[in-house]
Nucleic acid binder design. Structure first.
Lengths: 122, 122
DNA sequence: GACATAGTTCAATTGTTGTTGAATGATTGT
DNA sequence: ACAATCATTCAACAACAATTGAACTATGTC
């Protein structure tokens, strides 16, 4: 992944409205949601939601497809995973021991943490 | 993690300069680097680098400590891991089978992917 | 065809961010 | 004390992002 791609994705997620929309689409993967549902669930005006959905689709973080007079949006989860890999790939110059230490210190349940430095390589 | 915290972090990573700085600090974890080294390695003017380092430390993505006349910066990797967990936590409403499918489609080596939905729960 | 519904685009306003050079603060060495 | 080095702050400008209401397009219903 190129830096330019990654920054574009982080910029998309730097808006509270867009982050909420994206996480909602992640939660409702793989079927996604139609725009009206999103607008109601998050209480975002349609006009503004359109603006943010356009940004999400333009960055490829979401896909859209028409369904009659509705528009269905779905999260691009593989791209999300690629972005996470980009952020963690060179962690600690590849020292698994150090990464494991960080994982422990984070206090997060292991099943919600990325492998980070290959410390959990299967 | 609160939405506000997450958006602040993504906003930090949405600048090419800051993303490069942060990834460099991740790579050089846990020792970190001093400002001058970062400036030279990434070819960013000191003035501008200071601006971005301030943003990084203010968001807690990096810590700083004086060393004589130098200032050493270190990446806050646990916070990075928390942010990743926040983004992936509710993925697919917790359907491991669906998540596994996404992981396969992503084409990324498994050791660089987060567990996502607990599909790799130890 | 007329009407309602679902979304999008447009223009304008408001606010925020990135970058630069010059000036300033802080620490070390002579 | 003086100069050199490392880093930060400041002011100013340019560029960009978020939000809103009104107007518009497209689809489905009577």
């Amino acid at each position: 992944m190129e830096t330019k791609t990654a920054t574009a994705i982080f910029e998309i997620l730097s808006s509270g409205a867009r982050l909420s929309v994206f996480r909602l689409l992640v939660k409702y993967a793989p079927d996604g949601l139609i725009a009206g549902e999103i607008s109601r669930m998050l209480d975002i005006p349609k006009t503004n939601l359109s603006f943010h959905l356009k940004a999400l689709t333009h960055s490829c973080l979401a896909s859209m497809e028409r369904e009659g007079r509705n528009t269905r949006y779905k999260a691009n989860i593989p791209l999300m995973l690629e972005t996470i890999a980009y952020l963690t790939a060179e962690c600690c110059s590849g020292d698994p021991g150090q990464c494991l230490q960080y994982r422990k210190e984070s206090g997060i349940a292991p099943e919600f943490l990325p492998p980070c430095c290959g410390s959990e390589t299967p």
